[in-house]
Simulated assay, not measured.
Amino acid sequence: MVICLHRHQEFLYRFIDDGEAIRDSSWFESHSPGVMLAEHQGDWAVATMRDAAHTIWEEYAACRLSARFSHGEMATLSYAEGFETSLSGTVTRAHESIISFRTHGNCSQLLIETARAIAMPLKMSAYLMGHLDGLDEELNLMERCPSVNNSGMGDHFITLQRELRVAWETRKSWEGLSGVDGIVNVILAALLTAGVEVTLSQAPPGSRVYAPFTVETMPNG
């Protein structure tokens, strides 16, 4: 009976979480009508980074809104465990994509693959950050999730939490997806840690994606 109760609570919490994600989308639509469903205009790399940042923001906002309906520490532990699991091998996967890039030379593929690897733990941390902010509980990430200390990305998560909170406070006054540019900057900094330099630009000739040669990112390194 207890197991059934927990399953019912989990289903209800996930249902509420999905509902809050819809509410988050309605905020965006109210101040930037049509932008979410419109085709991206301008530079492809800017669009890619803003898409990734907005996904991270949506998870944070939905978890912050639904936190009051969660069943206490159980949800917190689940988010923390998911975050720590996502950290495993993150930088290594990015390095593997860079090594492949040395052969295929496709900058678009390089950015998409490395951003996917790097953005995943950022997104998973946003679940935890949003949940705890919704409960008005402070997050000591290094203590709650010790594996962050060995990830090489610890500072990026601290910066991410600050930028998510800024986005939250300004969420009803964004002008399109520029409202998540602070989160974009976090992703760019994390990519640089992994070995990819991205300079975003809407002006011709557009954004620049570059992977400096390092021991870790050489085919025979």
Results as ranks from 00 to 15, higher is better:
30 S>A: 11
152 G>S: 04
45 A>D: 03
81 E>A: 08
66 S>R: 13
201 S>Q: 05
122 L>I: 05
94 A>F: 06
138 E>H: 14
141 L>H: 00
15 F>R: 06
76 T>P: 05
78 S>W: 01
98 I>L: 13
71 H>G: 11
56 I>T: 05
195 G>Q: 09
59 E>G: 06
208 R>D: 00
213 F>P: 13
154 G>W: 07
8 H>G: 04
64 R>P: 04
214 T>V: 12
166 V>P: 00
114 T>D: 09
71 H>K: 09
10 E>W: 14
69 F>H: 14
14 R>G: 10
151 S>L: 08
171 R>L: 01
6 H>I: 10
96 E>I: 05
173 S>K: 02
92 T>D: 12
103 T>C: 11
49 M>F: 09
75 A>R: 07
193 T>P: 05
74 M>V: 14
24 D>C: 13
196 V>N: 05
79 Y>C: 04
78 S>C: 03
77 L>M: 13
108 S>A: 14
154 G>F: 06
161 Q>E: 10
55 T>V: 08
133 D>V: 03
25 S>K: 11
53 A>N: 03
80 A>E: 10
130 G>H: 02
151 S>C: 09
211 A>C: 14
150 N>I: 13
20 E>M: 09
169 E>Y: 10
65 L>P: 02
134 G>F: 01
82 G>S: 08
84 E>D: 07
194 A>V: 13
116 R>W: 06
183 I>N: 02
183 I>S: 06
145 C>M: 12
134 G>S: 04
175 E>G: 01
128 L>A: 10
49 M>P: 01
95 H>Y: 07
159 T>I: 11
191 L>C: 11
102 R>A: 07
29 E>K: 02
24 D>F: 10
199 T>H: 12
42 G>Y: 00
172 K>R: 11
138 E>N: 10
62 A>W: 00
177 L>G: 01
88 S>K: 08
60 Y>G: 01
221 G>Y: 06
208 R>K: 12
45 A>H: 05
161 Q>T: 08
98 I>S: 13
131 H>M: 03
2 V>H: 15
